[in-house]
Design a protein around this nucleic acid. Structure first.
Length: 659
DNA sequence: ACGGTTGATACA
DNA sequence: TTGTATCAA
């Protein structure tokens, strides 16, 4: 119901509007409210912030621990919230108390192990949802299942403020009647194509088609994906990422409001860039992250032209910090795009004259955000027993940024002694690989076998999966302070506090990247014998099987698309008000998709591992005090694009042919 | 149901 | 690397 209709029917209604700042909707209240909820939900497992109000959680480990130590069947009281769960496929047979049925299901001692894990997940999620309510005053809904896809669908089934569990045996029934367009990722053109090409109307209809057939129609990747999702198989990992990967600010100018002059475009770009600049500043202050690319998007119409269908091209350039610089660069990007859009024709009409074009939307965004390396070299201290974190001085850092060229010999001695000599690293184009000198081939075989023991059903039985929590603020939140920063963030603050001028930090914040450190290491002669693998082996031979599993995961380079391990976050803020619209928070656990043992051989040769694709869970095996630092190493690191190409920013705004 | 403001990802 | 297209909340 629209607002004015509601007013008619219900004159006393209090309607809350989305806040407006700089002439446009301002969503910061919602972003901050989401962060608050995330900081609660991220406590119990790997957490992925999937959108402004949804998260996925991988609760596998927590559920396994509970199953081993405090299984539901051993409890005399089951959480009141947990017994309110909806269990798909659990029929409320004869007038039995529904809650009693749920309690029974949760505690079944003869259940499939997979369902026992789900039961543990349901208990954990119920507890998390109550914590969210207590600490933030937001409610949320959740889905608990064996992968992200199933949890996502389950989370939407009972809201608000309820949770739904998808037992293993209910997967088939859930999917076969699900309309194809309701499936995530199939709500658009692909779903429509499925309907018209193959007459598929429910997910179940997909089962009739072979994987090959689906690949013929939709390509190898999409074909396989379709074949899998029809069977409830999804190996998408829960990405350990609590922070967004980009920031943007935009506005539309529909119909008659289209912008027709450069100066009105400049005005709005200035507003948008101001907001973007503020958010970049907050990200830098709160999360110690720096964005490296500025992109401008616009939509335009051109009446009066042969190809009036042409789209306004998006343009990007290196991002220079400082609101004014961002504004200048954005305007230049716009003008570069406009020249391309209008083509090279004369009409250089002035002022309010008719230009032949109109801008119907403008947005600026900042991407390629990288964390300033947080730790110093505590891991080296750990390994070598002596290294002062101060030796990575500002000066050495500056040395890092002036040349991006590999193997530059400059300034290496000042810190060569603090470089770990162990893993040998090679550069192959863009990829950084670590070469271990590994154990024996026999051991490798063992690892492989362990891997194979996993359930082939691919429903990833060993990993409990997802829950989705969706959320409904029923009262206005009062902004309870959660103490935002996690342990990691505190570390980063204490170890590398730097002053950041209000305007123009610039490249100065470039700090040695992993690659660069590695590069220095390569130039030094030292050869070492320490590697993370070796560390694993040396620390506890008795639990080798688990470690080997991790090692195997490391081998499976192809499978896990590199997880960007953005450790912490938790932006503290106070969302003063959120309108009583429903907020959707999804919690999901995912299966461990260290999948596809198919491609091992390719990587077997030379035992080269791509740093970017190392399974972050190996880090869990390290001592807590160095985990975060290792994560920072494993985290995909873009080399700051210092200089290179035309040294001037103007390069980006010239016509392409002149480059 | 629909539009506005986001954000992620795959692919060229 | 830059830019486009698609999908989603």
């Amino acid at each position: 119901m629209r607002g004015d209709e509601a007013k008619q029917v219900c004159p006393q209604i209090q309607l809350v509007k989305v806040p407006v700042a700089r002439g446009k909707a301002d969503l910061n209240t919602y972003r901050n409210a989401g962060s608050e909820v995330v900081s609660v939900l991220a406590r119990k497992g790997r957490c992925e912030r999937a959108s402004i109000d949804e998260v996925y959680l991988d609760l596998t480990d927590a559920a396994e621990t509970m199953l081993a130590e405090n299984p539901p069947e051993s409890l005399e009281v089951i959480d009141e919230e947990a017994v309110k769960s909806h269990i798909l496929g659990l029929n409320n047979e004869d007038g039995n108390d529904a809650k009693e049925n749920v309690r029974e299901w949760l505690c079944r001692s003869d259940a499939d192990r997979r369902d026992k894990l789900l039961a543990c997940g349901a208990l954990i999620v119920a507890e998390l949802r109550m914590q969210v309510l207590r600490e933030t005053e937001f409610t949320c809904s959740a889905g608990v299942a064996h992968n992200k896809m199933l949890a996502k669908h389950a989370s939407a089934m009972n809201k608000p403020a309820q949770q739904t569990v998808v037992p293993f045996s209910s997967v088939k029934g859930l999917l076969e009647s699900l309309p194809i367009k309701k499936m995530k990722q199939l709500g658009g053109k692909l779903g429509t194509a499925l309907q018209s090409d193959l007459g598929v109307n429910t997910v179940g209809d997909l089962l009739q088609f072979s994987e090959e057939k689906l690949q013929e129609h939709y390509g190898i990747n999409t074909g396989t994906w379709l074949w899998n999702i029809a069977r409830g198989i999804s190996r998408e990992e829960v990405q350990g990422r609590l922070l967004p990967k980009s920031h943007g600010s935009g506005k539309t100018f529909p119909g008659p409001r289209a912008l027709k002059t450069i100066s009105s475009v400049q005005h709005w770009l200035n507003e948008l860039c101001e907001e973007l600049g503020e958010r970049l500043r907050s990200d830098l202050d709160q999360n110690k992250r720096i964005a490296h690319t500025l992109t401008l998007h616009a939509r335009a119409y051109k009446s009066n032209d042969s190809d009036s269908h042409k789209k306004f091209p998006s343009k990007s350039c290196p991002l220079r910090y400082g609101t004014v610089k961002i504004q200048e660069d954005a305007l230049n990007l716009f003008q570069a795009g406009l020249r391309e859009y209008v083509g090279s024709y004369k009409s250089k009409t002035q002022g309010s004259q008719y230009n032949g074009w109109g801008i119907t939307s403008l947005s600026v965004s900042a991407s390629k955000i990288v964390a300033i390396p947080s730790g110093t070299s505590s891991i080296m201290k750990y390994f070598h027993g002596q290294y002062s974190s101060n030796s990575l001085s500002k000066q050495s850092q500056d040395n890092f940024i002036h040349d991006a060229a590999p193997l530059s010999p400059s300034g290496s001695e000042s810190y060569s002694d603090l470089i770990l000599t162990e893993p040998q690293i090679e550069f192959h184009g863009e990829e950084t690989k670590i070469k271990y000198d590994v154990t024996s081939l026999d051991e490798q075989e063992d690892k492989k076998n362990i891997w194979k023991e996993q359930d082939p059903s691919c429903l990833s039985p060993q990993r409990m999966q997802n829950g989705i929590i969706q959320e409904t603020p029923q009262s206005l939140p009062s902004g309870i302070c959660l103490g935002g920063a996690s342990g990691l963030e505190i570390i980063s603050q204490s170890e590398q506090q730097r002053e950041i001028p209000e305007e123009e930090p610039g490249v100065k914040y470039s700090v040695p990247s992993f690659d660069q450190v590695v590069q220095k290491r390569n130039t030094s002669k030292e050869k070492g014998a320490t590697s993370i693998l070796r560390f694993f082996k040396s620390c506890d031979p008795s639990c080798s099987s688990r470690k080997q599993e991790h090692v195997e995961a490391v081998q499976n380079v192809e499978a896990a698309s590199s997880v960007g391990f953005q450790s912490t976050s938790s932006i503290r803020s106070d969302p003063n008000q959120v309108e009583p619209k429903e907020i959707v928070l999804e919690v999901t656990g995912t299966n461990s998709s260290r999948s596809s043992s198919a491609h091992i051989e390719q990587q077997r040769e030379a035992w080269g591992y791509k740093v970017d694709e190392i399974d972050p869970s190996v880090v869990d095996e390290l001592p807590p005090d160095i985990q975060e630092e290792v994560r920072a190493w494993i985290r995909p690191h873009k080399r700051p694009n210092v200089v290179k190409r035309g040294s001037s920013i103007a390069h980006y705004f010239l016509p392409a042919k002149n480059r």
